[in-house]
Every structure is written in C-alpha cells, then in structure tokens.
C-alpha cells in the first residue's frame, strides 16, 4: 500500500519483481543500481545465500522526481524465486503496489515460469489482491541468449503461456546487457501512479 505524506509531499510506492528462480530479478535491480549510482544515495540491500541466490529480498529505493507536485520515491524489491522460499516470498509481497513479472526465455524453464505466475496469483489472493487488477508488467528476460543458439521460448509462446488472460504490457529484455530494464521500470511506475493519484491533492 503506497504511502502519501501530505506534509513532506512525498509518495512511497512499493514495486516487487517476481518470477522463477534464476530468472534475472536481482540482475534487473543491479543494473538499475549501477546505472543510476550517482542518483541513489544508499546501497542495494541484498539478503542472499553464499551461492548468490536471493534468500529474502533485494531492496533499492529510487527517487523518480516530481509527479503532480509530489516527490515520488519508488521502493524496488525482488522476491526469492526458489520454490522452497514461499513463506519469505509472500512476506515481501505485503503492501505491494505494482509487480514486474520477470519470466525466463529459456525453453527449459517453460514450466517454471507458469508455476511462478500461478504462485503470484495465489500469494496476491492471500492478501485479498487480484492479479487481474494490480498494475503488472511482463518482462521476458535473457533475450540475449537467442544469439548464443540456446533453445528459447518465443515471445508468442510466452504471451500464450503467461499473458493470454492478463493482457499486461509486456516486453523482451536482457537484464545482463540492460536492454529494456529501465523501460520496464518506467512502465510499471506509469501504471502504478494512477492508483495513488486520487489521493494527491
């Protein structure tokens, strides 16, 4: 749930990057952090295992400047994608305002994408939120691997698997090279802002 502070005229919005393990959620935040290093006053907070897998969450606060006279601060989080971390994954979703679903384009993980989306649906429902109503952007990540000859899921297949009913804005991306990483973030902010705009005066 976003917080609007009428005194400091600041809005805080919580965006969560969700998706299967190793899909590239943390890499998205790392790219944003490195790219905007000069603008971000704090460190990227990462609670991870020795093997670099997210254990609880990554956290990156990001000032996006003024919208309608309010300073907008976006709090970016990632969840741990591994199936076994469902209890902590669910905690991170608490109070979420917008979701980026990071799907993995590699053909071998087709099923994992679908299961993770189903898990998002369930965990949102537990907070009385609907996946059909929450601002959502679909990111089809690791598109750079196509050039390496790795068997890939085409955007059409991914659309059919994940987005046929949701019809969320979607885009291919490469968190590693940065392709569409910032575009994804801008898109989710644009979708999320109207949900709090009614409270701004």
């Amino acid at each position: 749930m976003a917080f609007v502070n009428p005194k400091t005229r600041e809005v805080q919005i919580k965006i969560v990057y969700y998706g299967p393990g190793r899909g590239g959620k943390t890499t998205n935040l790392e790219y944003i952090y490195n790219k905007f290093n000069h603008r971000i006053k704090t460190d990227l907070v990462s609670l991870k295992t020795h093997g670099d897998r997210t254990l609880f969450f990554d956290f990156l606060p990001f000032d996006v400047g003024k919208i309608l006279g309010y300073d907008v601060r976006v709090q970016l989080y990632t969840v741990p994608g591994q199936v076994k971390y469902d209890s902590t994954r669910k905690l991170v979703l608490r109070g979420v305002d917008g979701v980026v679903f990071v799907a993995d384009c590699m053909a071998v993980v087709r099923r994992k994408n679908i299961l993770s989306l189903k898990n998002l649906y369930e965990n949102l429902s537990d907070y009385n939120k609907s996946i059909f109503k929450i601002p959502l952007v679909m990111q089809y990540n690791k598109i750079d691997l196509a050039e390496k000859g790795i068997p890939m899921l085409s955007p059409q297949i991914l659309e059919k698997d994940l987005n046929a009913q949701l019809k969320a804005p979607s885009m291919v991306a490469s968190a590693l090279t940065g392709l569409n990483v910032i575009k994804t973030m801008k898109k989710i902010i644009m979708l999320t802002m109207p949900t709090v705009q009614g409270q701004l005066k």
């Binding site: 917080f3 919580k14 704090t42 956290f59 109070g95």
Partner: peptide, 24 residues
C-alpha cells in the same frame, strides 16, 4: 508500516542512519 514505508521519523542528530533500508 508493514510494507516497509516510512510514515515519520525523528533523530537526535548524532548519527545519520539509512532509514529507508532500515525500514525495509
């Protein structure tokens, strides 16, 4: 709040903490 947003904060000026990370 439980989502990690900051509603209000106060300090005695002795040390500056990164309260946004702290809140999350």
């Amino acid at each position: 709040d439980m989502a990690g947003n900051i509603l209000a904060s106060r300090d005695n000026g002795s040390k500056k903490h990164d309260i946004y990370s702290l809140a999350a």
